[in-house]
Computed example of a mutant assay.
Amino acid sequence: MIRDPSILIVYSTFGDGHLQVANALKQRFASLGYHRVHMVDLFAESHPFLNAISRFAYLKSTVYYPRMYGLSYHWMNKSKPDAAMYGWLHGLGKRKMLELADRLKPDAVIHTFPFLAVSQLNQEAKLNVPTFTVLTDYVPHNRWMHPGTDRYFVATDEVKAMMMQEGVNGSRISVSGIPIRESFRKPLNKCEIEQKYGLESGKNYVLLVAGAYGVLSNLRQLLHTVLKQSNADVLLVCGKNRKLQDRLIHDYRQEGRVRVFGYVNDMEELMSASSCLITKAGGITLTEASALALPVIVYRPLPGQEEGNATSLAKSGALLIARTTDELADHLHRLEEDAYRTRMGNAIRRLCGLDAGASVVTEVLQFVEQFKNVRQRASSAEERQVVHG
């Protein structure tokens, strides 16, 4: 193996999942003794104003205009990976990436967000760096695909098959699962967690997560349904939406069955203390919950990748989808049945058998080593040709 490779991970803060996957990979590299791992939000670094506007539009559209967001998602997915539109999008970060490549001399670039400037530069022969893309959803989108990408890492065989239908060679796709932080794969002491958060041993808790930016719709209706239709207390996580957190703390200050949190770094602790999770259908959140065998109910999945995530996992029996509060109530009642929870738990465990972080890091290091050896042999051949004229 290369003794001390330089690894560059490209992520984005459109949602929290892309950053979490980047952090998970960085942790895995570090656990193996590789510490020259650099992370960059390339879109934010390249075009901070455009990035801020795009993030604002993304968050607002998902809350107030979900159908429009879904139409936009599916319209873009109709374009082929080599479409001019995608070339323009990936090209937005090329200048900054050339600066980073000159300064950091990366031996590999890993994308956890489809801003594929390095793949574009490789195709244009302006760089020659092994590039890898880690898809963070359970459905593919053509924006993730690029002819200049060396290897893709995907969640399931189904995702691989769908990408092959779009023309990606199967030898370039590895079914690794989605990388998550090590804390979700380690045994947790439930008694210590209950003491830390002041939770009651033996009591049922429903974890209600509004997303990283607190944008889950109909939050009060969901809360009312859980309190009315079950005997569980609610652990309500508002993410980075401080206004929502303050408002709910005020409104439910007299309700002893509700505990309100802001952004939670140790989400694995609240998940392990809960009997059920109600949330959005972000690929990372669903993977984290599956690693802890936590039953999930997705409420009104956002049209686009979240609906695809929810539908894909619901087919395998690993989660439930509720589109109304009546459906939510029905699902809560079903999860009270031991036999049903057992079947769902088995489906979840089949989903989370892969150690995705280890798979991705091992394969990246092997590829980089092979790439370096080939380049050295080619360089030696050229030198011999010059010497022997």
Rank of each mutant, 00 (worst) to 15 (best):
Y73D: 02
A84W: 14
A314M: 07
E166W: 13
H331C: 00
I173K: 03
A44Q: 06
R259I: 03
G93V: 02
I53E: 08
H331E: 03
Y86V: 07
N241T: 09
A155L: 03
R172S: 12
R377M: 15
L92F: 06
P140S: 14
L365V: 08
Q366N: 14
A117G: 10
Y69F: 14
V10L: 04
Y65T: 14
P130T: 10
R375L: 08
T225D: 04
H224I: 11
D246R: 15
I321P: 03
S290P: 02
L199Y: 06
E192I: 10
S119C: 13
E369R: 12
S54G: 08
E99A: 13
E200F: 08
M163N: 05
S6C: 09
P303W: 11
E307V: 10
K126N: 15
L92E: 08
L50F: 09
V226E: 07
R55W: 02
S119R: 09
L335E: 04
M97W: 09
L98F: 10
I297L: 00
R103I: 11
T287R: 02
Q221Y: 12
Q254C: 12
A44W: 05
A83V: 11
A101H: 11
S359Y: 09
I180G: 03
M163I: 00
D326I: 11
H141D: 00
D338C: 13
T285E: 01
D157M: 11
V258F: 01
D16S: 15
A232S: 08
A57M: 11
L50H: 09
R375H: 12
R384A: 15
H35V: 10
V260T: 00
H35C: 08
L92V: 08
L42A: 01
N241S: 03
R247D: 15
